[in-house]
């Protein structure tokens, strides 16, 4: 199976507004996910326009932008993307 890509924006706005916490997501991820999810820190995704500052922090999962990213919302999205995964 192709790995799910999770890219965490480390632009300064996102970093200030929460991604520094998300950078530790790999450590708290369920062990069995670690082979199916590729986590990387990437430079600014340019989503933090003036109207949209409060959308930060942003991440990109399989190419799809997610705003207000939290550990919970990222986990939920990964769960949806993992084939045949139920609760865990």
């Amino acid at each position: 199976m192709k790995k799910i890509t999770l890219e965490i924006c480390c632009g300064t706005t996102c970093y200030m507004l929460g991604t520094q916490k998300l950078l530790q997501i790999e450590n708290i991820m369920p062990e069995e996910w670690k082979n199916c999810v590729a986590v990387s820190a990437i430079p600014c995704l340019n989503n933090c326009t003036s109207e949209n500052i409060c959308g930060a922090p942003f991440v990109r999962i399989n190419g799809e932008i997610m705003s207000h990213a939290s550990v919970e919302s990222i986990f939920n999205r990964i769960r949806e993307l993992l084939p045949g995964e139920g609760e865990e």
Binding site: C10, T12, T13
Partner: peptide
């Protein structure tokens, strides 16, 4: 951090 973020200066 806020000034850098405000000016969209990416440190990385």
């Amino acid at each position: 951090g806020a000034i850098l973020a405000g000016r969209k200066i990416d440190i990385m």
